[in-house]
Design a protein around this nucleic acid. Structure first.
Lengths: 207, 207
DNA sequence: TTAAATAAATGAAATTATTCACAATTTACC
DNA sequence: GGTAAATTGTGAATAATTTCATTTATTTAA
């Protein structure tokens, strides 16, 4: 499993999601062609992607759904049950805390940080401890490598501090610009950009 | 501007965002190398991307920031001021309605639909009219082409109906699987997948 | 006014990603 | 147990994307 391309990496979570759904529906066995229709990715791409992890299927048969789930879950780090933190408990932050579709699927948000921890903690929907930003160092959970950023400003400073504290990955909901320190990774979740892309594409369809 | 690749298309909103920020900071002129550091995309890729729209820069000088903003804003359809609808006014839906960073940047959410419109409308934070899902046909704004999907289940049915009503693009926050009707486009915004990707990458860094 | 420096534009090369085409393997059925 | 049908796995071909290297236009400074 030495070198898996970026493009393939992006598809793994898609496969896992689809496989989970299939398993829920009682499907025990799946062929690349079926999965292809399901996720709208060419079957040959699927097989290629799978083959990078190992020989997961059987010729003339297909893939065992639960086996695949187990493998992908492991590869995608579900067993680690990542301890994550959330920074910025505003509206969006709260929505994310409550969006518990993911709990123990992609890790767990252990605690949060904000400029007004007392006020935030009083909100009934905030279900984790909230500390003041200045306590980042003391309160950062042991081994925490991923932070979810939902603050309106001041991202750079916080990112730098997180870096110093050993955090490696940022899920960035901020629209602010910041320079990513060496050795960190980030993923942007930017609804505005997504909509813009879509608008652009829809409008080119119309022409 | 006949054929712009998918990869390039995804970068345009990133450029626009960065350029807006630079303009706010009083920057009038930018070179591809500066922008490159800013957005973490190779300068040569930036120049290539820009050149697909036209000759936007001047040799030996760079690009005029405000001029670029105007061009990209137009290309990305900001002038259309898309009328959008939101379906599913739960926690996430409400957060999106309130996340007004984007208003009139990427269009405008005109109204929303839900199974319990009365209850949702009473929420103080819901700032658009909420109609019952069954009223989709009557209440869909004239010319609406984009819908934001935030429902926990029943996506397929709604997507089909949207298709029949002429909606072309879906911003999908749902984790449910649905088959996209011919001629529709969707973009998934899936926090769980994003986190999984990140966890996977962070953990491969560690090895 | 001219030369040197700068930086965009772009054809060509390199890299990355997808798809084809078929051999290899397994299942299912007789 | 053997054979036909099905489906994976993968080397090779193709396509898409990025990067290099050069050319061209513009600015700046003498």
């Amino acid at each position: 499993m030495s070198e898996i391309s970026k493009a393939t990496l992006k598809r793994y979570p898609v496969y896992l999601k689809a496989l989970r759904k299939l398993s829920e529906d009682g499907v025990k066995r799946v062929m690349s062609s079926q999965l292809s229709e399901y996720v709208d990715i060419k079957s040959t791409t699927i097989r290629r992607d799978f083959s990078l992890i190992g020989q997961l299927g059987k010729q003339g048969y297909g893939y065992d759904v639960d086996e695949l789930i187990e493998i992908f879950a492991r590869e995608l780090g579900e067993e680690y049950d990542e301890k994550m933190i959330l920074i910025g408990v505003g509206r969006l932050g709260t929505a994310i805390l409550n969006y518990n579709n993911w709990n123990h699927v992609a890790g767990e948000i252990v605690c949060a940080f904000d400029l007004y921890p007392e006020k935030r903690s009083r909100e009934p929907k905030v279900n984790v401890p909230v500390y003041h930003i200045s306590q980042l160092k003391e309160k950062l959970p042991e081994g925490c490598e991923i932070a979810i950023l939902c603050i309106p400003s001041g991202a750079q400073e916080i990112v730098n501090e997180l870096h110093d504290l050993g955090v490696k990955g940022i899920v960035n909901f901020t629209r602010e610009h910041f320079v990513l320190p060496e050795g960190m990774i980030k993923r942007d979740v930017d609804v505005v950009s997504v909509i813009q892309e879509l608008v652009f594409e829809v409008n080119s369809m119309n022409q």
